[in-house]
Amino acid sequence: MLVVEPLPDAAARSATSPARIADVAARAGVGVATVSRVLNGRAGVRPSTRERVTEAIEALNYRPSSLARGLSLQRTMVVAALLPWFTSPSAVQRVRGIVDGLSDSGYDLMVFDLESQDRQRRAFELFDRGDRADGLLVVSTLPPAPEVERLHAAEIPCVLIDAVHSCFPSIAVDDVAGGEIATRHLLELGHRRVALIGDPPPEFRFDWSRDRTLGYERALAAAGIEVRDEYVREGTRLPQVARAIAAELLSLPERPTAVFAASDTQAIGVLEAARTLGIDVPGDLSVIGFDDIEVAAYVGLTTVRQPLVESGRRGARVLLDVLARHAVEPLRELLPLDLVVRSTTGPAPS
């Protein structure tokens, strides 16, 4: 059976389906072009007319199509976030902040996972044309030098989060200071045999791991303690890899009494290794991480907190300022770090 029903009028449509721009125009007694000018913030509309259009938008709960608005403005109305370790806890928290920062902007978010150098190259080639996204948020990595030139040539706004480059606004933390904070905490507890589990040489950038290692070395030097090569180990951010590395460290003839892990996920791997070997934490071994991901509080992990969510939120808002052609100062913004003492660190064993 074929049933044909009449098209609903504007009043009926408002109750059954989203309002259209034509409905707003009809209610305000203006043309569609006038409504469009109001929506896009353009001049040439009388205040009284603008007020009528705004009232009609509110009364009809009108939500403009991001696609249609993008076409009218010659924009995609999309922001792209490029980041490695997309499913890692710290990356998830940064993306949460980005989403919050863009929530009232009218921009949609596209996330691209840089799981390898090849995907990194492809991602920048994809987005440096400017027809996929109006701006880029590059997280925990740096654009390769050729891409920096192309992004500038194409005038594509780009903001870095957890990375620093002289050509782009950057939101970061002082990782050298963070490494010093973590190591100094262990030294103040009386530890002298302090190990470090960092990351391998950078696949993308990952200067933060190198800088945290530098902070570790500086804190030891300030205390008059030499860095022991056998106490400095490298691995990925995966906790199972950190667990295997920690098991080797904790099996040394003169094992460390404390471990600074360059990330909380690595620190959790150290805790698992200590539990497997029957080593008491913090009685026989102190462990400190970096990041303060959500699970850190549940396992009682002492850590250096960086504002992961706020870094994403701040990066998104800086990018919105750039997209709006507002002046952005300073070009490099450092967010604060805090030592969070929980139950995995304690005095060095006698």
Rank of each mutant, 00 (worst) to 15 (best):
D118V: 09
V232H: 06
S311P: 00
E230A: 15
A15N: 13
P84N: 06
V299M: 07
S209T: 10
G346F: 06
V30D: 04
L82R: 08
S311R: 02
V30K: 02
R305K: 09
A267T: 01
E234Y: 15
Q266E: 11
A80M: 07
R210Y: 02
L137T: 14
V99C: 01
D113N: 15
S48D: 15
G97L: 12
D118H: 15
R342A: 09
S48V: 15
A59M: 00
G179C: 07
G29I: 14
L334A: 12
V328S: 02
S14G: 01
R94H: 04
T276G: 10
N40G: 09
N61H: 13
E310S: 14
F86I: 13
E226C: 00
V281T: 01
I181D: 00
R122Q: 14
T276I: 10
S48N: 11
V227F: 09
S105L: 08
A297N: 10
V4R: 12
Q240Y: 12
P349T: 07
A219N: 13
Q93V: 04
P347E: 05
E58M: 01
L151K: 10
G190K: 04
R75L: 08
P282N: 07
R193A: 15
F290P: 10
E180H: 11
P349C: 00
L109H: 04
T54Y: 00
F127P: 04
L335M: 02
R275G: 14
C167F: 04
G198Q: 01
T213R: 15
A273K: 10
A123H: 06
T302D: 09
D23S: 04
A80G: 07
E149I: 00
F168I: 00
Q120M: 05
S36A: 05
V340D: 12
S48F: 11
V4K: 12
S72G: 13
N40C: 04
A25Y: 03
A258S: 07
D291T: 09
P347S: 03
A26Y: 01
V24Y: 08
A28L: 15
E5C: 09
L136G: 03
D162Y: 01
L82Q: 02
V227H: 02
L71M: 15
R50F: 13
G178M: 04
G44S: 12
T76F: 13
D292I: 06
T344R: 08
L331H: 03
L137R: 12
I293N: 14
E55P: 08
T302Y: 01
T302R: 00
D338L: 02
R69Y: 10
S263P: 02
A26R: 06
L301G: 11
L83S: 07
S251A: 15
E55R: 15
L187R: 13
I245E: 12
G29P: 11
H191N: 00
L252T: 06
R132M: 06
L126A: 13
D199Q: 09
R228N: 05
D321V: 03
A28S: 10
G178N: 09
I57S: 07
I21C: 08
V194M: 03
A242T: 14
L71I: 14
L73R: 15
R313K: 11
A182V: 13
A15W: 08
A177T: 07
S170M: 06
T76Q: 06
T344S: 12
P200S: 13
R205F: 13
S48L: 07
S90Q: 08
V304G: 05
T265A: 10
V194G: 11
D162G: 11
S166I: 02
Q240W: 09
V232F: 03
A258E: 03
R42Y: 12
V227I: 15
